[in-house]
Amino acid sequence: MSTPNSRANLAFYAVIALLVFMSVGPVLLMFINSFKLDVDIISGTSGLIFMPTIQNYEQALCDVLWYEPEHLDFCSLKFGGAFINSLIIALISTALTLVIGCMAAYALVRFRFMGRDTVSLSTLMVRMVPPAVLLVPVFGLWNNEFCLDRDGLIGGAIRDTFGGRGDVCLAGTHSGIILIYVAMNLPFVIWILQSFIVQVPRSLEEAARVDGAGPFQVFFKVVLPLIKPGLAAAAIFTFRIAWNEYLLASALSDRDTRTVPILIVNNMSEFNVEWGVIMATGMLLAIPPIIFTLLASRQIITGMTAGAVKG
């Protein structure tokens, strides 16, 4: 009796071990390769016997290092700057999306008002729009229409105070990219948070109302603290998209506002790929999401299930 059972158990754990190996293996491979010299990667001294080196990371981060690595005579890869751009864009757009999305989700759940159904339906519809579809209009609008005219009121004021040409377009600025990320992520955040806000007991809010709190106070002091897990999940998903997105950022950014994914793609498309350095940059880009996953996997899974099951 015990033999088939333990054999089944063995098979069971073997399957699990295989699955873990398959899902983590490629990441691990990249991690290891990022510490190898190109010679080692190409020559195929496979396995773990190699001299680990941080040269790849030094080369990737050469513009923010405080010392000059001796193997480098020219800093071609401006990874540090791109990393900071990515950080600014992802953090600000996550914060904005959360605040705005949270308020909208609350209104959709708790109030009956004119146009509520329309709003909630279009939120869902917009969720289906792929970023590639937004590429053309966003490129056109951000470059041509969403500009401060130099003769206009605000543009003129900027020109008079700060000098410069005075005609500023959204394209090529951090805020341009942030705006489209916020808009892109809002439907999703609203959708997820709705399912969390529904669970907040109404009586709590009414009690606060009776004690003389205004609607905004009720929202910030009663509802927000209760939906923290939902907020965490929504924050991670938003951050992930804003941090990882390539297409729209590549259309909207210029040399100074490039984000990390753009940098990686640009370096990939060249004929001769320097695997070591590319993998080091890839690893650096992957680190923040990996940290989030390790810290908050429970919230991620809750968010994922809430998002799918409460369709």
Partner: peptide, 28 residues
Amino acid sequence: LRTMFILPMMIAPVVVGLMWRYMYHPTV
């Protein structure tokens, strides 16, 4: 286990492409 399984989808698509392009490379 679940943490390890969600790792692949949290990583940037660009990086996923990069990893697989390396693994599929004809010689190395």
